[in-house]
């Protein structure tokens, strides 16, 4: 039987099970820790660092850190609000995020975090790198300008035999997301939709359904990201 543990986040007493990832345990207690690469029940990647919190005085990624008895976690402190804002800003300048022209606008987690942390302008200079788009597969646009290298698609989207449809190529500043054209040709509409839905930005787009939700009815038009978690436990 799993062992129940107690810990605190910003002084709020929380309960979880031993070994449960901090970010999930926090969500179960109605505390939102922002994520971009993390998905519950998936092996953590720890790549985006937006979930950085302070645990007993040390900065840790809440998506890779297991909850332990007696942990004192700092989450919504001014220090961490600024660190997260800086991470969002870095992601915005690193890629080419033209929100006005993006099909994912309004449903985009990165953009929603920009709203949450009131990003008016990034503090870093824009990189404006040239990245190629891959539109060769029947169901998916791969818009690399917007990829934030969260690796969700690589970890989640498989074909019927469990083979990866998406993969990383290169290292460092040549790293890019790629799609296996043969396997992509076998993708069903459901899998293509799932790939688009799990992409936290507008990198993976399902063809032929652009701008399906009008402005005002999109996911983050009126509800800040994370408010579902926070409202569930009031």
């Amino acid at each position: 039987m799993s062992e129940t543990i107690k810990f605190t986040i910003d002084g709020k007493e929380c309960q979880g099970t031993k070994g449960q990832l901090l970010v999930d345990a926090a969500a179960d207690n109605g505390v939102y820790i922002p994520v971009l690469c993390h998905m519950r029940d998936l092996i953590p990647a720890g790549s985006c660092r937006i979930c950085t919190v302070k645990v007993n005085g040390r900065n840790m990624a809440a998506c890779t850190t297991p909850a332990e008895e007696g942990m004192a976690v700092e989450n919504n402190t001014p220090e961490f609000l600024d660190i997260r804002k800086a991470i969002v800003e870095m992601l915005f300048v690193e890629g080419n995020h033209f929100c006005p022209a993006c099909e994912k606008s309004g449903n985009c987690d990165l953009q929603a975090l920009g709203y949450k942390y009131q990003m008016m302008v990034p503090r870093f200079p824009y990189a404006f790198e040239r990245r190629e788009i891959d539109a060769t597969t029947p169901k998916i646009f791969l818009e690399r300008n917007r990829c934030i290298f969260c690796k969700r698609c690589v970890r989640v989207i498989k074909d019927e035999e469990g083979r990866n449809i998406f993969a990383f190529k290169g290292r460092g500043n040549t790293l890019e997301i790629n799609i296996d054209r043969k396997l992509a040709a076998t993708m069903t509409d459901e899998i293509a939709q799932k790939a688009m839905d799990i992409c936290p930005v507008g990198c993976i787009l399902k063809k032929e359904i652009g701008f399906v939700n009008p402005i005002g009815q999109r996911k983050y038009d009126t509800m800040p990201i994370g408010s579902d978690i926070e409202n569930n436990h009031q």
């Binding site: 080419n96 022209a101 824009y126």
Partner: peptide, 17 residues
């Protein structure tokens, strides 16, 4: 700076790169 183009170049900046 009013609007995306003033803030980040906006659609004209699609030519950047």
């Amino acid at each position: 700076s009013l609007g995306e183009c003033a803030i980040m170049g906006g659609l004209p900046a699609l030519r950047n790169g």
